[in-house]
Design a binder for these strands. Structure first.
Lengths: 139, 139
DNA sequence: AAATATTAGTTAGTTTAGCTAACTAATGAT
DNA sequence: ATCATTAGTTAGCTAAACTAACTAATATTT
């Protein structure tokens, strides 16, 4: 089996994803969050007042899927919503409790990520991040 | 929002995955394959006689999940099974039809991957592949 | 200004793909 | 011989995604 460079690249890329996500999911279960919830919580924490449509676009999922995740986060009190200037759109905000949970979960994810990244030099990490971004633009 | 290198790395890494997989899934639908089917078909093509347990381990999924995918591939005539030396284990083989579908799908995936990888130099692709492999070992 | 098109978000329903539990049969270890 | 582990299957369940349809708000076109 002789793979070309790009074939090998994507094979390894996809091979890394699933085990990584499984570990992430496992780690998140300690703070009672699912992957979609964490993904949303994190994006909201970084961009207060984000709308569901923005969240959906950012996560590459459809609006009803986001609607559901938001509902879950509302129910466990991690976020709240308010009406935006555009009366169709809701803005999503973290609650104090949400901020605490976000901080706790961040620490856990940080730990995992550090383990996985190991001693890859920072400049290399950054270079790879750049490449991922370029590639995403081509999709 | 100031992310550390490893945080940015994993953000970009996961950000690339979903759109890439969506495109891959779309491309595969032209030849009537789902992602799990393609993943299995490809691995079987590369390692004739692979067992379901090997496939499950290789894909990071549980055996019943593989059992189902195999059933699907059997039903559309892309694979066949035979008994191995160990009478518990089945060996999976591509049919001629399976080989044809595999070749067709490979060409399609190849095209997509080339688009996405763009003009990233080969040596860089290889270096990144290496890094992915290292990281996977740490999981 | 009115009509039409598009967008925001929700609800309902469906599908997919993963998981666990349980089981039978075969093999390996004690 | 007995017990433990492994291989694969079946059944059942869950989570998370999707599409279709809808109401309300905004933007664009007529």
């Amino acid at each position: 089996m002789n793979l070309k460079s790009h074939q090998l690249f994507f094979r390894r890329f996809t091979d890394l994803y699933r085990p990584f996500i499984q570990k992430t999911s496992e780690a998140l279960s300690e703070v009672g969050l699912t992957l979609p919830q964490w993904s949303a919580l994190r994006l909201i924490a970084e961009q207060e007042g984000m709308t569901p449509a923005e969240l959906a676009a950012r996560q590459f999922v459809e609006k009803p899927s986001v609607s559901r995740t938001i509902q879950q986060l509302l129910e466990i009190g991690l976020i709240e919503t308010r009406q935006g200037q555009d009366r169709r759109a809701k803005q999503i905000l973290l609650t104090d409790h949400g901020r605490n949970v976000y901080n706790g979960a961040s620490a856990i994810i940080e730990k995992l990520e550090r383990e996985v990244i190991g001693d890859i030099p920072e400049h290399e990490q950054n270079a790879m991040s750049e490449r991922f971004t370029e590639m995403q633009r081509r999709l």
